[in-house]
């Protein structure tokens, strides 16, 4: 579904991404792990088409997104990609309902369908009671669920999540990860998540480890249980830590 070939990026003569190559299949739940400054968010910005100043090729279903410009790239982002940010990035001036529906107002669908879709996704994510509230009136966990709903309501083919549990407590993080897993299992949405937290990463099916702008290791969960996969991730991190020492 997504093919990333030899993607490199530099800031002020410093290479932050070096020849990144990997593929993501439809329905995957992929995680990119790495320490701060390893290039995870830069890669996510490229994949989300927010940053188009890079070398290499990024293809979504055969479409080379580096060649898209202006309105085309915005339309592509609107219909194919949903983004969830660490700090939720909800519009403070709009209610929860308006924050979700705003993603649909840019699409050519009827107002009735817009409303139905919002109510449906709000019901799925358990936020139907807070639709009339403003972001500052709800908790961090609820804000993140609203951000998920905004990403999901467009029915995108892929969801990109940048440290989605970064600002949440343990219970809210668990609830969010279960929501993402449910979205992946039930709606078959492809999810690419960036995190440095092993517990969060253990919910994924596949993990790419990044270091100094390169992908250094790939881990596949296969049929393993989540607890076992979590232990494997920790082992891998410990090994990498001792190697660095």
């Amino acid at each position: 579904m997504i093919n990333i070939k030899d993607v490199s990026k530099q800031y002020d003569n410093k290479m932050v991404l070096k020849d990144i190559t990997f593929d993501i299949n439809a329905g995957d739940f992929v995680c990119i792990m790495g320490a701060s400054g390893s290039g995870k968010t830069t890669l996510l910005n490229i994949l989300s088409t927010i940053d188009n100043d890079y070398e290499g090729i990024v293809e979504y279903g055969g479409v080379n997104i580096s060649k898209l410009q202006g309105k085309n790239i915005a339309d592509f982002r609107n219909s194919n990609i949903g983004i969830i940010f660490q700090d939720y990035n909800l519009l403070d001036c709009l209610t929860v309902y308006e924050n979700i529906i705003i993603a649909l107002t840019f699409m050519k669908i009827s107002k009735k369908e817009q409303q139905e879709r919002v109510l449906e996704i709000a019901g799925e994510l358990g936020i139907q009671d807070i639709l009339e509230k403003y972001p500052h009136e709800i908790s961090g966990g609820q804000c993140q669920r609203v951000a998920c709903a905004r990403a999901m309501v467009k029915k995108p083919s892929i969801i990109l999540a940048d440290e989605p549990t970064g600002a949440l407590d343990t219970a809210a993080s668990r609830a969010l990860l279960k929501t993402l897993k449910m979205m992946n299992d039930t709606f078959k949405v492809t999810i690419l998540m960036v995190t440095h937290d092993p517990l969060t990463a253990s919910y994924c099916k596949k993990i790419y480890f990044m270091n100094d702008g390169r992908i250094v290791k790939e881990m596949d969960r296969g049929e393993e249980k989540r607890e076992k996969f979590f232990a494997d991730i920790l082992e891998e991190l410990l090994e990498r830590d001792s190697n660095e020492i």
Partner: peptide, 16 residues
């Protein structure tokens, strides 16, 4: 400023 970044991320183009 932050709002414009959010609007771009959910599919708005610079012109609109």
């Amino acid at each position: 400023e932050r709002d414009y970044y959010i609007l771009m991320s959910i599919g708005r183009d610079k012109k609109s």
